[in-house]
């Protein structure tokens, strides 16, 4: 086995994992606290990538673009909450799904109108585009390492925010009894809008981080959202910690499956059979894992306590 290749693939898996976490954490927060299903979360991820791409070309700096794009996406999330999500909180999940499905169509088409059908690549500045030399023959791409670090920082920042700050305390209180919190004089509607905006910002950030690698494209949101669903189902809907564990698990399984499953199958199959079946199985691997976990734990790995 080639250990350099394995290391690179593990790194790719981690990178996918942290990006998935950034998308899934917003979903799971919004669901856990607001009991709201937001299919359009992936579209916000896509908007993050496109806004960042435009700003990168306008400002000629990727870093400045990200710093400016984050609050823009946060505001978009806030507006989305006020106009679409808020009227639907009191409805059942079916209405959430249909309403946000409509929002996907609207946001995707608007993105199509503004940015055109082709993807937009984002150039990286030189200091991010290089390699980090770890040892004699192992080099890691700087930007991928950076994604993992930023993603993990965001993950722990979010856990800290929810568990150890006053805002987090209010959010948790609002989740368990919103009437009581608002009776105590907290503006619960603004609080919920802030939660929504935080979730949107995290998803947008994931889009901004992945765009220099894959480019910003129209279908990217819809590709990521289902995987993010798998992550929060496996992690337990509403649990930020569960989302982190599940995102890393799913990211690693998906990446390593695509990279090594055919080699693994060759151990006990003919080469031709392995090469035919491996892509099919690896493309299904995360769903099979989800099915496996759910048949043992129907509420996910870290089901939030009943309230």
């Amino acid at each position: 086995m080639d250990y350099t290749l394995l290391l690179i693939q593990v790194l790719n898996g981690l990178q996918l994992g942290v990006l998935l976490f950034l998308v899934a954490s917003g979903l799971t927060l919004v669901f856990g606290i607001l009991d709201f299903v937001n299919l359009a979360h992936g579209s916000i991820y896509m908007l993050g990538a496109f806004v960042c791409a435009s700003l990168t070309y306008a400002l000629d700096s990727y870093l400045l673009a990200v710093i400016l794009a984050l609050p823009i996406i946060g505001i978009i999330g806030y507006v989305f909450e006020v106009f679409l999500a808020r009227p639907l909180y009191s409805r059942d999940h079916l209405d959430h799904v249909l309403g946000t499905f409509g929002a996907i169509l609207v946001i995707d088409t608007i993105a199509h109108l503004i940015w055109g059908p082709a993807g937009i690549a984002i150039p990286l500045p030189n200091y991010l585009d290089g390699q980090i030399k770890i040892s004699e023959n192992i080099e890691l791409p700087t930007f991928r390492v950076l994604i993992i670090i930023v993603g993990l920082l965001a993950a722990f920042g979010l856990l800290w925010l929810v568990n150890f700050t006053r805002l987090g305390m209010l959010i948790r209180a609002g989740a368990s009894n919103r009437t009581m919190v608002s009776a105590l004089g907290i503006d619960i509607r603004t609080l919920f809008a802030i939660v929504f905006a935080i979730g949107a910002t995290l998803a947008g950030m994931a889009g901004m981080l992945i765009a220099p690698i894959t480019e910003a494209s129209l279908g990217m949101g819809n590709n990521v959202i289902i995987t993010a669903f798998v992550v929060i189902i496996v992690g337990g809907i509403g649990s930020v910690k569960g989302a982190l564990v599940a995102a890393l698990l799913i990211g690693l399984i998906d990446t390593l499956g695509r990279a090594f499953l055919d080699d693994f199958f060759k151990i006990f199959m003919s080469t031709a059979a392995a090469e035919n079946s491996a892509p099919a199985i690896s493309s299904m691997s995360i769903y099979l894992i989800m099915a496996l976990i759910l048949s043992f734990k129907p509420n996910g790995l870290f089901p939030p306590r009943l309230r």
Binding site: H93, I226, P279, S282
Partner: peptide, 23 residues
């Protein structure tokens, strides 16, 4: 499962079929 889990899991399984035929 119930509720939101059910919505998302049916969605995930259909996406699995999608990726199966793509591959």
């Amino acid at each position: 499962t119930k509720g939101v889990y059910f919505i998302m899991i049916t969605m995930a399984f259909s996406q699995m079929a999608y990726y199966l035929f793509v591959s």
